[in-house]
Simulated scan of single mutants.
Amino acid sequence: MDEISASKAGTFEFDKDFIINRLGYGTMQLTGNGVWGPYKDPDQAVDLIKKSFDLGVNFVDTADSYGPWHADTYLAKALKEYPDSDKIFISDKVGQVRTGENEWTPVGAPAFLRQEVELSLRLFDRDHEDLLFLHRIDDHYPIEDQIGELKKLQDEGKIKHIGVSQVTLDELKAAQKVAKIDAVENMYNVGHHKGDDAIVDYAEKEGMAFLPWFPLDTGNLTKADSPLNDIAKKYNASSAQIALAWLLKRSNNIIPIPGTSSEDHLKDNLNAANVELSDEDFEKLSGLEK
């Protein structure tokens, strides 16, 4: 059996001190229904995060809005209990509040964004955010004010790298006029990518990381009737592994961050690093979106 390790997916370099394996882990599923409330077994959540570290994950994507704060609390505990946790990098997000199950409201007030960063640093017991995303642009405030506040925090040493999430290409370019943008996080997967292909290509040209959220389309790409299944059989792989292998082959700046609450699924996802798609199968998969 091939070794299961995120390190086999290759690396992406944000800077000389911030080099990550290209298969990360997302914490959003470590919450209650509708990404609201605590996970059913907090100790299991902590153990799963630590297991991801054991399997070579050194990049975790999270947000205070997951729960809210519950996923971050489990991550903070896992980091505290794990040896060499200073070698684990965190991708964090600010700019959304929760008012109930499945309810998300952008809030881009600069003072609020600053408070979120300060609280996250306190929770994670760190002096800076490795990568900090504006989770959503809030139309009530100029983008210059929202990204500008993150730039101020960066100048103070509290943020190393700034990213933007769920943006258009024009919004990305507008953010670049305010600060250096090092990452984009948009919904992107083998079944839903055409609208953002240009952003992936632009980000690659600019040296930015691209984090695809919903890399498995919340399970839709792994269902029994998934069109990925025939190709998966060819590679003796799961449909999830094929979906992730497609992302890894699509561009070297793509960093998939699949989330799961299952250790078996975690191992299955990371085993995607052992799948090498042929150019023919990559093109066939790229044409699945109607």
Rank of each mutant, 00 (worst) to 15 (best):
V178M: 00
A175G: 03
A183V: 11
G148E: 02
I143C: 07
V164R: 03
D139K: 14
A175D: 07
V164I: 15
E103T: 10
K177V: 00
Q154P: 04
A179L: 10
T99E: 15
R114M: 00
G163K: 11
R122Q: 15
T105K: 13
K177N: 11
L131E: 10
A174Y: 04
L119P: 00
V184P: 09
K180Y: 11
K151V: 01
K151Y: 04
Q146E: 08
G148W: 13
S120D: 08
V97Y: 09
D138F: 06
E103M: 06
L150Q: 03
P106Y: 09
V117K: 05
F112C: 04
R136A: 15
E185F: 00
R98M: 14
D125E: 15
L131T: 08
L113W: 06
A174H: 06
Q166I: 10
E185S: 13
E185V: 05
D125M: 11
T168G: 04
P110T: 06
L169W: 03
D125N: 15
F112Q: 13
Q166L: 03
E149P: 06
L119H: 13
I181A: 09
K160R: 15
G157Y: 03
D182K: 02
V97M: 13
Q154V: 01
H161Q: 04
N186M: 12
E144M: 06
K177Y: 05
I143P: 01
R98P: 08
P110Y: 05
E129P: 07
G148I: 10
D155R: 01
N186W: 03
K180G: 07
P106L: 10
G148H: 10
L172Q: 09
W104I: 14
I159E: 08
